[in-house]
Design a protein around this nucleic acid. Structure first.
Lengths: 294, 294
DNA sequence: CCCTCGTTTTTTATACATAAGAAACATATG
DNA sequence: CATATGTTTCTTATGTATAAAAAACGAGGG
């Protein structure tokens, strides 16, 4: 019933660990591997058993040694390492953004479950979690309504985003000189410059850097509600832009420059310039998103 | 499997409808009742059948008449009109606030399901929905952690609340004279004054008025994320104060007066006094909550 | 004793089953 | 033909089952 995605993921990770070891070398203990792989010992043992069966590991009395370097072939494909609940997320996003759904569409748990080839329970659970993104709404005893990835969604999103980021950016300026955050900001700048230098080839890496940058700013004064809102933003950018590649390179280059300006403003500790740089970036991000919606 | 709480709720509501009719009078059509009761016709028919069986309604060819006024006894008890998923909410809140759980406690789906006497599926679904309140956190393949109803929870909550309410209160001042909101504010003031006049007897009614007041202010410029955050606040006040009755009367009286001051400030349309009144109220609300936590 | 490994127990993720409820379809009646 | 009721079909809410994963327990060995 339950899928063995945890095992497969651990198996793949284990291959990488073994790669760092030599033939005939003894393996770390089950417990040590458990910690490295981030799974339970039960799963570690299953992985070890699988590797033994394949001759990659040779189990002797009270020790295990590397018998054969694993080949790429033996890795499980990426899809099989994703829990069904994660796959459903992707399926749903695709369904939503590919345009099968316009605002007001009724969402049918049973139908989605059939379409995605999973149990209704899973779809239901997903929708319950997804509710917090503000894109769907539940009606008692009667399924869900898709509210639409609309302009008003984007505007409401950015209204909150502006409040939160301006708040964090201002708090940033008040940090003492000794704070480790300043070093993180430095390396964040470096990462931006690097990406900018190679923008033609690597412009798709921006999305992840963007998320990291905004999370760093937000993290100065932790607030669980703000952090949870970051998830909404990450979701929007991750999926929406995946289906809207228009001008991606140019868009990202502009955003990188805006980030750099904001970094400079933060380091200046001048509230007025921080406000200015922050608002400039958010306004441009909002316009970009709005353009891609209509 | 599924409980018939919808039916029971509709049955109780139907009793109230019948009360407004006379003996021998003809009943509205199934469709009309459907609209009044807010359920499907299937459920309406079930209710009608139940009432016929009890002699309250007499079904003749092509019409139904009132045969007998229903008695209070025939109502289903309130508990039976709540869906299991709603009952679980109450059980969980009780478990949480009665102190069985301290910060860091691991939440065990299976154990909770046993304790509450419901299926694990339901507990799981509840926890997924409840996650948005920021009191619990999920760990992959390993249940949930209760983060605690702590001072930092209250502080983070109020930081956001202040941002949101100040924003709404300011927008309020910009409304045109003709806006219907001003009349709603008037009647809100009246409701507050009424409650204040009878505070000794009715102080428990404040909780609901409080929620309505804050929702009215927030509703001037709708934003789904702010509205969703209101749910968090409502939850906190609803449950937390249910288990913290200390000084309730005095607390509520203070809050009513603060609301009245804010109403006055709003009507003055003076941003500075609005800010002042709003912040004053929120500060005092925060202090009250903090006191009751420690 | 602490660590490692074998074994057993418990919990979670997922599928499936089914009664209650909603919706769609069909028929009758004024 | 529009509206009201009877009938059928589909969906949702909730319970149960089970493989996978985690956690707890236990026995040797350094």
């Amino acid at each position: 019933m339950r899928t063995d995605t945890t095992f497969k993921r651990a198996f793949n990770d284990m291959i990488d660990i073994i790669r760092t070891l030599d033939l005939g070398e003894e393996l770390p203990s089950e417990n040590a591997l458990r910690a490295q792989l981030g799974v339970s010992r039960t799963t570690v043992r299953k992985v070890l058993a699988g590797m033994s069966a394949r001759g990659i590991i040779i189990s002797e009395a009270h020790r295990r040694i590397i018998g054969d370097q694993p080949r790429q072939i033996e890795r499980y494909p990426k899809e099989e390492t994703l829990a069904i609940s994660e796959q459903v997320e992707t399926s749903f996003m695709e369904w939503m953004l590919r345009g099968d759904a316009c605002p007001g569409t009724e969402i049918n748990e049973a139908e989605l479950a059939r379409k995605f080839g999973v149990a209704t329970t899973i779809v239901r659970e997903f929708l319950n979690r997804f509710q917090k993104y503000g894109l769907i709404e539940k009606r008692q005893n009667a399924g869900w309504v898709f509210k639409g990835f609309t302009a008003s969604f984007a505007l409401e999103l950015f209204e909150i985003r502006e409040m939160f980021e301006m708040r964090s950016a201002r708090l940033f300026a008040a940090l003492p000189d000794g704070s480790p955050v300043w070093r993180q900001i430095q390396s964040m700048r470096a990462a931006h410059l690097e990406l900018l230098a190679d923008i033609d080839a690597r412009f798709q890496d921006f999305s992840e850097l963007d998320s990291r940058f905004h999370r760093l700013i937000t993290a100065v004064a932790p607030n669980r509600f703000i952090e949870s809102f970051q998830d909404v933003i990450t979701m929007v950018f991750h999926y929406h832009y995946q289906w809207n590649k228009r001008d991606e390179r140019a868009r990202n280059e502009v955003a990188i420059r805006e980030h750099l300006a904001l970094i400079e403003a933060l380091e200046s500790r001048n509230i007025a310039s921080i406000d200015h740089a922050c608002r400039l970036h958010l306004t441009s991000a909002r316009e970009t998103l709005l353009r891609s919606i209509v």
